[in-house]
Design a protein around this nucleic acid. Structure first.
Length: 485
RNA sequence: GGCCCCAUCGUCUAUCGGUUAGGACGGCACCCUUUCAAGGUGCAGAGACGGGUUCGAUUCCCGUUGGGGCUACCA
């Protein structure tokens, strides 16, 4: 497979679905791995359902994931003249024929066939029409569609993931290729476009397997070279059914807003339906994926989308990526949360980086970082009732304890985590307290919560002055508790 | 109904005839420890079923069952 040309061909009728994103990803991976070309074609021929918003959503999703395409986007709708010309070429060559059956007649016959328990197949009645009869109807302006005349025989191909797949033609109807309004039907438009775009490898979901023999027949009738096909397994929801909105977030945009990183999404999706084989580190960068990728590792079985594993993977990427990128991602969200202004953050990049180092290891989603960041901004903190109830059971004693800490903090020369810890341990010991008996109440005083990064890392980030004011505030709060009591 | 595809722990997967069936997520336990994470260690957990082929089948073949897809003048 030398320099293959591939394409991702979504129809803009919704958002970029994770299944579609994965199809795009595999096409992209093959192209990047083999030095091929990855193209994007928007299949907007269903004008009733296609929207500009959906088209934009597809572009946005692909861009976010970093799946760049190599040539101008092809809009299928713009190729209508060629679709029609190709269909008429087939008619002229005797490979297609006019069918005057109306949709109503067809659905009636279909209903009748199904009621009788049989499968409906077009009976080719219009292919039996006499030439002058056809001419008369055309002259009279009777509407007609163009149907492809399926020859006797069998169509088979060697699928890149499934191996040989064959369909006897007895199972294939004389399918419509051109509607009565002159617009093409999916299979015809796809083949016409794939030929025009020079596509050499068609990779798509395996829900297209049954379309493939029809398309191959069209390639042959049009005298074109048949591309290679590869049918990827589907992605299912946790209940084993085809992934749909019922399963929650299914659009890549949903995950973007949830705080999933594009590299994590790409990594996760790549491992759904593909494996490099053997033992390997599942956390991979885009570059590592390209390096490891091979169509040999494509799986046949449908995979269940596991959001938990996606989040785990996101946490892995979050922990490994350059801290500057984390900062770039989180800063706008801190601003949006009202914790700081962009200028304030820009003024102390090193402080921000230290904070993020502490928080990212405790986070799976980007937004988890934001949720934990509040205690590090502003002069005051709100106390979580549960934390107060659990850690501040003896207000009077704690007030005195915090006063001692305040003295320690004011006098302590080396403002580093290790040094502060040693000093506090000594303080706890001098008071006859276990370290935890001092640290946990102190954590609540400084962060308002019973959960936070290492206490002395917190102090370092807070700085001496804010540490002092928070202690004061806590003492004040505790005074209130004891008078109430 | 017809046609097609698929089938290893709950989930993602390794295994290309011979393994105590390996890893990862999740779960549980323990370690680390000032909390929470992260990290480390350990435990539980799988070849759907029935026939073949073979000295030997998770692996190859057939059938059954189960799941999925397609079956439009949708894409």
């Amino acid at each position: 497979m030398i320099s293959p040309r591939l394409r991702f061909a979504p129809s803009p009728t919704g958002y970029l679905h994770v299944g579609g994103a994965r199809t795009a990803l595999f096409n992209w991976l093959v192209a990047r791995k083999l030095g091929g070309t990855f193209l994007l074609r928007v299949e907007d021929t269903d004008r009733a359902r296609s929207t500009d918003e959906s088209t934009q959503a597809i572009f946005d999703g692909l861009n976010w994931l970093g799946l760049d395409w190599d040539e101008d986007v092809v809009f299928q709708g713009a190729n209508l003249p060629r679709h029609r010309a190709d269909a008429e070429r087939l008619l002229a060559a005797g490979k297609a024929y006019r069918c005057f059956c109306t949709p109503d007649e067809l659905s009636e016959r279909r209903a009748k066939a199904e009621a009788a328990g049989g499968a409906f197949a077009y009976d080719r009645r219009c292919d039996q029409l006499a030439h002058d009869d056809v001419a008369r109807r055309v002259a009279a302006g009777a509407p007609f569609v163009l149907r492809f005349r399926v020859p006797d025989g069998e169509t088979a191909w060697t699928d890149l993931v499934h191996g040989r797949i064959a369909f006897p033609h007895t199972d294939i109807d004389d399918f419509v290729i051109l509607r009565s309004d002159g617009t093409p039907i999916y299979n015809h438009a796809v083949v016409s476009d794939d030929i025009a775009m020079g596509i050499t490898l068609v990779m798509r979901g395996d829900d297209h397997i049954s379309n493939t023999p029809k398309q191959i027949l069209l390639y042959e009738a049009l005298g074109a070279t048949i591309p290679q096909f590869g049918h990827l397994p589907m992605i299912h929801g946790t209940d084993g059914k085809k992934l749909s909105k019922r399963h929650g977030a299914t659009a890549v945009g949903d995950y973007q807003h949830l705080g999933i990183l594009p590299e994590a999404m790409v990594n996760f999706l790549a491992l759904l339906g593909w494996s490099p084989g053997g033992d390997f580190d599942e956390v991979m960068t885009r570059e590592q994926l390209i390096a490891a990728f091979s169509t040999d590792g494509l799986l046949k079985k449908a995979a269940v989308f596991d959001p938990q594993k996606l989040e785990w993977m996101n946490g892995q990427h979050l922990a490994k990526m350059p801290i500057e990128r984390v900062a770039a991602l989180v800063a706008p969200k801190l601003v949006a949360a009202g914790l700081a202004t962009a200028d304030e953050l820009a003024a102390k990049p090193e402080w921000l980086h230290s904070l993020l180092e502490l928080l990212r290891v405790r986070s799976r989603l980007v937004d988890d970082i934001v949720r934990q960041a509040a205690p590090f901004f502003g002069d005051t903190v709100g106390y979580e009732p549960e934390a107060v109830a659990k850690q501040w059971k003896d207000p009077a004693a704690l007030r005195a304890l915090f006063a001692s800490v305040r003295e320690l903090v004011a006098a302590h020369a080396e403002w580093s985590s290790g040094s502060l810890e040693a000093a506090h341990r000594a303080l706890a010991e001098s008071k006859g307290l276990g370290a935890g008996k001092l640290f946990q109440p102190l954590r609540v005083a400084l962060t308002g919560s019973g959960v936070s990064p290492g206490l002395f890392d917190v102090m370092v980030l807070l700085g001496r002055e804010r540490t002092r004011t928070r202690l004061l505030a806590a003492e004040e709060y505790l005074r209130g508790l004891s008078t109430d009591a």
